[in-house]
């Protein structure tokens, strides 16, 4: 069981590292947000699942495990609302990528 826990937490770290690298190096604001969802989904979910399994089977404390799982559920429900609001706010306040986008239906419908 310790091995499963370690693998899950290591996978979480891997995705968090990938997301952090993306946030720094991606070319424009929206692509940076895309990289940051990598951190909040599998990055935190891996660590949370690993932590919950650790609490259930190694520590033997059901209450702690349930709390950790509840944190995961809350992140899954609340995080996309924030991501959506930030991306939409950025677009409406005039943030545009340096390079021309492949297709921009949103700008075509609302910038007129």
């Amino acid at each position: 069981m310790r091995i499963v826990v370690d693998i899950l937490i290591a996978a979480g770290f891997f995705f968090a590292l990938a997301g952090a690298k993306g946030v720094i190096q991606m070319p424009d604001a929206f692509c940076r947000m895309q990289a940051s969802t990598c951190i909040t989904t599998l990055g935190t979910l891996g660590v949370i699942l690993g932590g919950a399994l650790y609490a259930f089977f190694v520590m033997g404390s059901v209450g702690t495990g349930v709390k950790i799982l509840l944190i995961g559920v809350l992140i899954l429900t609340i995080n996309p609302i924030g991501a959506h609001a930030i991306a939409r706010g950025a677009y409406h306040s005039g943030v545009r990528p340096d390079r021309e986008m492949e297709i921009d239906d949103y700008g075509r419908d609302f910038d007129e």
Partner: peptide, 26 residues
């Protein structure tokens, strides 16, 4: 779907972040 997309984006991040082709579709 989450794992597939995560691997895809993580691959792009480690690939130097030049392999993107962003756009807004309706």
């Amino acid at each position: 779907e989450l794992v597939k997309a995560n691997l895809d984006v993580a691959g792009r991040c480690f690939g130097g972040c030049r392999d993107v082709n962003p756009g807004i579709v309706k």
